[in-house]
Design a protein around this nucleic acid. Structure first.
Lengths: 237, 237
DNA sequence: TTCTTACTCCCCCAAAATAGTGAGTGAGAA
DNA sequence: TTCTCACTCACTATTTTGGGGGAGTAAGAA
């Protein structure tokens, strides 16, 4: 039993495999005396990865039911910089409440706290604590531990990065300034004529940029190219 | 003189104006005994905002020379999740070294440490400490203070968000499940026929979803709609 | 120097997307 | 109950995009 934050951090920092992180989340669960501790991320092409104490059944069900698409936690964290207390999210939709009920049936607690961390290329990591508790008790617990949890989230994230070798700049294509300009105009809603006018070039030239950007981004069409440019962070609209 | 981390955090949390944050960065500079402490961000439409101890001359020069476009710190932080020690970045390009020399002339130290924080729509915040020091001393200093600095960065960020009212979920339109599905398929690069097949509906029906999503998102065309859906976080690709 | 890369311009034609209509079902809310 | 909204399907004409060519200049790197 690990009984200090320092030791928890050490065990994370010394992790050399995903399994070590798995063990670390279990230790954190015991340390904080909560039901579940989970770290996971989703990258820009939808691959997932993680370590945590959710039961395999719940994870499978989550994937199977495609809860990712309507989970208020995901949705809430995606729109914010800051951590969220689950109770403060919008659970009004029927689907969200159904998911919550389903989660409770699979051994999750009614309270949660999730810290979002975002990366350069649409990577999106979540560090979650889940427990059974009254609203006040949970809020107080979070308030007491928020800073430590932030540090833990970042340390877990750092390790996960090492394992997955993210931030590999080679994978993010370099677009030329004009290509970036073209993508940006399109992302702003201009058509080719408008974008060409904006960039003060002929529409033919603009097309060259769009085409080359599309190839560099490995996109099927213009919409795809803009989507990739946005979600990999090469353009900002 | 504020002489404990707790007091520093309190002064940030109690800030009610940007000037309070400015004072907080000055207090942090004195607390850590460094040359400069800066927090600033860039939002999705390129607006900047910040508080810090850089001289107005340097800030003006930075903007005037458009250093933002080639600053290795910006570039490095943009490609990483994790904080960067400036010395570890790639300063090989002529422009980068020229900028560094210019920075030293404007009162910056040779060492720096920058923590990037990313937001939902390309928002991008940086918290930087800058000082004159030997490599080893600086590395040791950072290693000792990394966790505290992370907490400080997040607290500053939280305040900055309050002032600017980002992440205002009320402004993001609600798309129906099918509309979300349609946008997601398009963002993945499918054309209408493929998306319709994927969603198991006729192409005509798919078009209705695209149209209604476009109207809800206030977009000029499909590409624009997908771009808005992505950058407001209503879909995840 | 040579070589690459970014930048600019032009053609043609098929394929895809868009705009403007329309209508009918079922579920849930007021 | 009535009313709204999500969901499903259809037609026609017009505009926009996509894919295939080719070609020349200027700047910077090897």
């Amino acid at each position: 039993m690990i009984d200090s934050l320092e030791q928890q951090l050490d065990s994370i920092q010394n992790a050399s495999t995903l399994e070590d992180l798995q063990i670390a989340t279990e230790a954190l669960r015991d340390y904080y005396k909560v039901l579940h501790v989970v770290y996971h991320w989703v990258n820009s092409i939808g691959e997932r990865f993680g370590a945590g104490t959710y039961s395999p059944e719940w994870v499978d069900r989550y994937v199977e039911k495609d809860y990712l698409r309507m989970d208020p936690v995901i949705y809430g964290c995606f729109q914010r910089f800051t951590p969220v207390i689950w109770k403060e999210l919008d659970w009004s939709s029927k689907a969200a409440r159904a998911m919550l009920g389903d989660a409770l049936d699979h051994g999750l607690g009614n309270q949660g706290y999730t810290i979002p961390i975002r990366g350069p290329s649409g990577q999106f990591a979540l560090f979650t604590l889940n427990n059974h508790a009254e609203d006040d008790a949970w809020t107080a617990f979070i308030s007491d531990n928020a800073r430590d949890l932030m540090i833990l989230a970042h340390e877990l994230n750092k390790k996960a990065l090492e394992f997955e070798q993210w931030g590999d700049a080679a994978t993010t294509p370099m677009l030329s300034p004009r290509e970036l300009g073209a993508m940006t105009c399109l992302a702003k809603g201009m058509n080719r004529a408008q974008a060409a006018a904006e960039m003060q070039i002929s529409e033919h030239t603009l097309r060259v940029y769009i085409e080359s950007a599309r190839h560099k981004l490995g996109a099927m069409n213009t919409t795809h190219a803009v989507a990739r440019a946005l979600s990999t962070g090469v353009i900002i609209v």
